[in-house]
Write a protein that binds this DNA or RNA. Structure first.
Lengths: 352, 352
DNA sequence: TTGTATGCGTTATCAG
DNA sequence: CTGATAACGCATACAA
């Protein structure tokens, strides 16, 4: 009673032809007579024949599917990226297989092995906060598996990468807080091993320095699990407020951290930006509806997904190893949404 | 230079054994001597052997992958559901292949054909707003393809379904608005063909009737594209406000519609709930951060994904057609988040 | 123009 | 205990 498909054999038998003739007729080969072709095609249509892609994959050693590994699907940034990935994949006849690492290096590795053993033709990856050992990525890459990294990239591996200008995004965000008059600006960021954490932290520091504000290490808090665990963000903020350098504003350097900070500040009864300034990376479509709306740094997530997929398909389809790898750096969007005119004015200064 | 895997043949050749011996040794067959087993296992480990799942699929006629079709991944409700689906699939060694219909029946059909021709072992589907013809679903189902519907289900097809009590959710939401003192309560809902739209509309109407409020058709607006197109929601609201029965509150009957309404009301300069009441289905984690926080009806999305997947795996693994289909009805959560004490009081009345 | 034989990687069925 | 062979569905080099 299993979903049983009709094969080329069935057609051959029914029509008194050989399987190869049928195969060729279906592929519209030049060496098949028009009559036979027509016969086969019509019969195939009639009995609703569909080639078995698994058999095809086995033969052609390609599955026309790409694997995607992110920490979490239910995160605006990643779900928007996956949207872009699916979009391009669909247009090119590829399937998208999704896996989540949940910020666990073990789980990431398992998914990686699983997907590659599943014969995906390529991988699009944003590494977990926990990943320290890139050996398996390297091994895969060396063995010829096409890989494209995005957002949280692995610098050491020579393949295409798609990121935003994290330094500039963080710089702009921090500068915005400075222009708003904040003096003790803290930052809550991801584990320091992550490329995005490093770049954004550098942007934050540079902005402070360029504005004559000293960088205080007590004002820099790391969340090892990328904000997946609420308590972690809570702890970070608690520490910030119990430090000598009590902050008057916070720059949250990732989607999950921004909403995490916002939630905890509100829970503490602190209004944003009344009591404390806040800006952060975010791709949620609701931040603009907050009252007052939250200023954010937005990444072009959908486009990142599209670009990553196009690059991957390029790698997949040019069978030879590609040596001229590129890192596509897109721009972030600083969305100033403070309500007072004064702040809008300041926003303009930054934009210019 | 293609990513080439090591096969059972390679092991056989290297060890001077036959492929069948190697195969059996790897599967820990009782008919292989401990020494040979050890030899094979160690060598396999050493050269990092992994069975080719495509070849396995061809042989076993199963791919250990499930297909998921939703209208849009970048929607809190669906991304949370997919999170749950991936979670269970991962635990059972299945891959999740994602496809989006983008509320287009054509695209849904193409994805459907694509996924099934890709030999997924089963499907988890939430139909698009546009879907009117369920013929292909029926055909697949009749041919033995395991299918589980969730959220937007197809009543006519006898298979497992996972939904929430949409009637009650809508009833509670509408009742809440009534208790808050609103008199002319409008609703913005999905295309009337959708199961969820019908059920929620019924709940809305029942709540009004039970509270002695007349149902006015002008206060019921449909969005054919489920809010995918902003203009559509804008139009609906514009129509509501230009009708004789100008509403004083709105019940938005889906995630996308709730945020859509909120956005447009804000854009119109109307404060919620100051100028107009609003409640709706939503799974966004930011609604609670709005000021004042927005009251919503939340669906247990993650759990729905988990349950749907468990049911699907059951269908897949019991090869015979299952005849005792069930519809799992979960409860929605009415999250009252109005700020005034009076409203909180009223919320309690509803809860009791 | 069509048919036959082989291989893709694996397991199952025989035979030894 | 182990090995040879067929089969899964398809494409293709080679034969006719």
């Amino acid at each position: 009673m299993k979903f049983e498909a009709v094969t080329i054999k069935d057609i051959a038998k029914a029509l008194g032809l050989s399987t190869s003739t049928v195969s060729r007729a279906l592929r519209d080969s030049y060496e098949i007579s028009p009559e036979t072709k027509k016969l086969v095609l019509e019969y195939a249509e009639k009995i609703n024949y569909h080639p078995n892609p698994i058999a095809l994959s086995l033969k052609e050693r390609r599955s026309r599917s790409i694997g995607v590994i992110v920490c979490e699907i239910a995160n605006s940034f990643f779900s928007q990226t996956i949207n872009g990935i699916e979009s391009i994949a669909y247009n090119n006849g590829y399937n998208v297989i999704i896996a989540q690492s949940r910020e666990s290096a073990d789980r990431e590795l398992l998914n990686l092995q699983y997907l590659t053993s599943r014969s995906v033709d390529g991988l699009i990856i944003s590494v977990s906060t926990e990943t320290k050992d890139f050996g398996y990525f390297r091994e895969l890459h060396d063995r010829g598996m096409p890989i494209v990294f995005f957002d949280r990239i692995v610098d050491e591996i020579e393949t295409h990468k798609v990121i935003v200008d994290n330094f500039k995004g963080a710089y702009d965000a921090t500068t915005h807080l400075v222009r708003c008059g904040y003096k003790r600006i803290a930052t809550v960021c991801n584990a320091a091993v992550l490329s995005i954490a490093k770049e954004r932290l550098a942007g934050y520091k540079a902005a402070l320095t360029d504005n004559g504000i000293e960088v205080h290490d007590e004002l820099i808090k790391y969340c090892q699990h990328g904000g997946m665990i609420t308590a972690e963000v809570e702890e970070a903020i608690k520490e910030l407020f119990s430090s000598r350098q009590k902050p008057d504003a916070i720059f949250a350097s990732a989607d999950k951290l921004t909403t995490g900070c916002l939630r905890i500040l509100k829970a503490k009864g602190l209004s944003v930006p009344g009591d404390i300034g806040l800006i952060g990376f975010s791709n949620s479509d609701l931040t603009e509806l907050l009252d007052p709306p939250l200023s954010i740094i937005k990444q072009p997530a959908f486009e990142m997904g599209e670009i990553a997929t196009n690059l991957l398909l390029q790698l997949i389809e040019s069978k030879r190893p590609v040596t001229d790898f590129e890192t596509r750096v897109l721009t972030t969007e600083l969305l100033i949404r403070e309500s007072t005119k004064k702040q809008k004015q300041k926003a303009k200064e930054i934009a210019s």
